[in-house]
Design a protein around this nucleic acid. Structure first.
Lengths: 187, 187
DNA sequence: GCAGGTATATGATTGTAGTCATATGCCAAA
DNA sequence: TTTGGCATATGACTACAATCATATACCTGC
């Protein structure tokens, strides 16, 4: 998920600080490049024809956003800081010229994107599991080892209460074990 | 989502037919390449250490899978045909050499993957909307114009009944209009 | 025109996750 | 060491989507 550190060097990103509520870019603005979140949260939202808006993504630390802007003349959504944010901006021209002239960079970027695709497919598949117990168990079996269950919960589309209950129920069912307060393991 | 036709030519894919239950590849097999689904459905599943399996993805017509295998020595999951399938297999060596020698191809692939990332983020965001009404409305506003509501429903994590009810409720609330049987439009 | 199949649509019931409340354990700062 | 804040954990109640059932419109092949 995290954009390799190498990219910062290769693409020559620029530091950018936003206060909560400030915009990294607006819909229909000419595209200037893609971004990486160092700290804070950025909400990507598209304003639809009828004037309402739809949230497309919630980008947090380590995530990149606006990759597709490399192939578009204008941004198709707004990027609004939800908290104070530290971002790195990679200028479109720099990135494109790097990609056009350095194959290793392209391949690394393809690898980065493939990994994201893989992860998102997994998350969608997990969200398709109806029962909270089964979903949490599947996530654990799929390799999730959350540092915090509370922040993990929304990733798989549950409230933290539902996750705690699921952990409790799975323990009772003997499918996982509680090693310590907040520490659970498979089998 | 659909792999550009151009890729079939550029990467020189080979046609592959599977009967339901047959494997495109197995976990820990040496990676041979990535695949595109022409018809049918393929399930990607990972067998975990405890012997159980987790479904990672359900690939349908127009979708590609195992992109990340380009960067791995072995497959990390099984690919099992759920129905009779027509696939196109793109040999790893061919794809990698194409990507290494033809920048336009790399850029096209990056564009393809960026688009998928964008779409998956949107789907995840939609699935995070609790109320069925709101979720269907957001999906419509985000640009979904499903040919069939029934096949659309599972994409946003709902049953088809829930979608029909949502459409009905949204119509009553005056947020969408029913143009015809199965045909709804915004405002 | 009729039969069979499918998408559309709605009703009744139930399971279950969300919501709100509350309690406890833990850590860090004062 | 006390205080405040946060993650963990669980209880009670409720809202609502899943499930199962049924009906209708539409299409296609006969």
């Amino acid at each position: 998920m995290t954009l390799p550190q190498a990219f910062a060097r290769t693409f020559g990103g620029h530091r950018l600080t936003l206060q909560s509520g400030e915009y990294a870019f607006c819909q229909d603005d000419p595209t200037t490049g893609l971004f990486s979140v160092v700290s804070g949260y950025v909400e990507l939202r598209r304003v639809t024809k009828d004037g309402t808006s739809v949230v497309l993504h919630h980008a947090g630390p380590g995530e990149t956003f606006a990759e597709a802007s490399l192939f578009s003349q204008t941004y198709h959504c707004d990027a609004v800081a939800q908290t104070a944010c530290e971002l790195v901006q990679f200028k479109k021209a720099d990135v494109l010229s790097q990609l056009q002239t350095h194959n290793e960079t392209s391949l690394a970027f393809i690898e980065h994107l493939s990994g994201q695709v893989q992860r998102y497919r997994l998350l969608l598949q997990l969200c398709a599991i109806r029962r909270a117990d089964d979903r949490v168990l599947a996530a654990m079996r799929a390799g999730f080892q959350p540092e915090s269950w509370k922040s993990f919960a929304p990733q798989i589309g549950l409230t933290h209460e539902a996750v705690y209950r699921a952990l409790s129920a799975l323990t009772k069912r003997g499918l996982i074990v509680r090693k310590d307060r907040g520490v659970y393991a498979l089998i």
